[in-house]
Design a binder for these strands. Structure first.
Ligand SMILES: [Mn+2]
Ligand SMILES: [Mn+2]
Ligand SMILES: [Mn+2]
Ligand SMILES: [Mn+2]
Lengths: 220, 220
DNA sequence: TTATATTTTTAGTTTTACCTAAATTTTTAT
DNA sequence: ATAAAAATTTAGGTAAAACTAAAAATATAA
């Protein structure tokens, strides 16, 4: 794999994220990268010349197959470093992104594959986003109810079924919201209550009724 | 601490290394950085303007007190990453430098101080060079004979007293040369022989006579 | 369907970090 | 002490990646 500049890599990664919702426009990219439309056009010409991008002037852009491969590799580096920072260096989940934004541009393949191995081939970063493997493959993320989550497998809250003020009061009290990383430590047969844990809290117990309303992203 | 560009950091680090032998000249720096004298002059003006360098045109350069602080911090980052690569990711000692050359420019203080803690505050990198602490202090490196090295304290071979072909034959057989990292695992009172270990080998025994001829850099 | 608004590209600058070639200063050798 | 050699700086230029302002193309709305 050829090496790209930090600037090129940041453009590629951002296009990859935005193109999930369709073709990416000049202005949308400029807004996302806090840049100016004219700068975007210049870089798009460069990425097109390098065959990373399909793009007709005045119509939007999408990454080429090669461009997508590069994007997945950068995302892999970013998320492995985030996992490292959170798990090994005790960074909190809101501190990891900024540092990973720099570490992701160190492009040694051996470094990343050895780091992956050292970390035990994690499948999700501290925010619950999936980590591509060395081939750029991402494990399927599926939505599961908290009641069905296996023990000791952290997953990320992505949906709360009930929207009443009373459930929100309880979630708030337990410091659970969309994006919170949760792990089930124990299940009690008597009342189907669950002992769960988040990064921010010591283990605590919640009712089956509450658990039934919480859905999580879970990498198989 | 202000942030510097990758280019500025590489200049600062190289000046710091060269100025051990006196004032650094334009041509010496150009040779070391594989650059051209005119490029050096331009950067020297910039570093002087930033108060990192003492420099009179046509005479050599030395880092200012502030410049030395910056240099020590970059060296700290470089050597901690080398230690990480060797100890945690099983890189061999000749592979670590190239990757560390990139990682050293990620400048988060928290990252480096947490990494230091995670690694157990190591005092020397895989080549035996001392690692500055968070204040930029370097532990004194002293030369000790292998017979006086404490148990389980790795140190780097820096000198072999006897230079005869017979001792070199033996050193070669045991894969010991200048720069080899050696650790004493056991001492036997009967004949003062030592069980030692290197990165490349399983533990093996050497005679007192051989040990007396091997001197090592040792960080107290 | 034509006029207006929006989006995108082009043109022309700036900054950083390089380069080569020429000029200048310092060193060295007769 | 002066001339030749070596080292260093200056002058002028390139490439990448940003910017502003103006021009051109596309979309929308009367
Ligand atoms: Mn992130
Ligand atoms: Mn980035
Ligand atoms: Mn090194
Ligand atoms: Mn470097």
């Amino acid at each position: 794999m050829i090496n790209y500049t930090v600037s090129e890599e940041n453009y590629i990664k951002t296009i990859h994220r935005l193109q999930q919702y369709g073709t990416v426009t000049t202005n949308a990219l400029a807004a996302e990268l806090k840049s100016k439309p004219a700068s975007i056009t210049a870089m798009m010409k460069k990425l097109k010349a390098k065959k990373l991008l399909n793009y007709q002037p005045y119509y939007g852009f999408r990454l080429s197959a090669e461009g997508n491969k590069v994007a997945l590799l950068i995302i892999r580096r970013h998320r492995l470093w985030e996992y490292f920072l959170a798990e090994k260096l005790q960074f909190s989940w809101d501190e990891v992104h900024e540092v990973a934004e720099h570490l992701e541009h160190v492009s040694s393949k051996k470094l990343i594959d050895k780091l992956d191995e050292f970390l035990g081939f994690p499948t999700a970063d501290p925010h619950g986003d999936p980590i591509p493997d060395a081939q750029g493959k991402i494990k399927n993320i599926q939505k599961v109810c908290l009641t069905d989550l296996p023990l000791n497998k952290p997953a990320t809250v992505c949906q709360v079924a009930d929207q009443s003020p009373s459930i929100l009061e309880l979630l708030n009290h337990n410091q659970i919201k969309i994006g919170t990383r949760v792990e089930v430590k124990r299940k009690f047969d008597f009342d189907n209550s669950l002992e769960i844990k988040t990064k921010q809290t010591a283990p605590f117990t919640i009712s089956e009724q509450l658990a039934k309303n919480i859905f999580l992203n879970y990498a198989e």
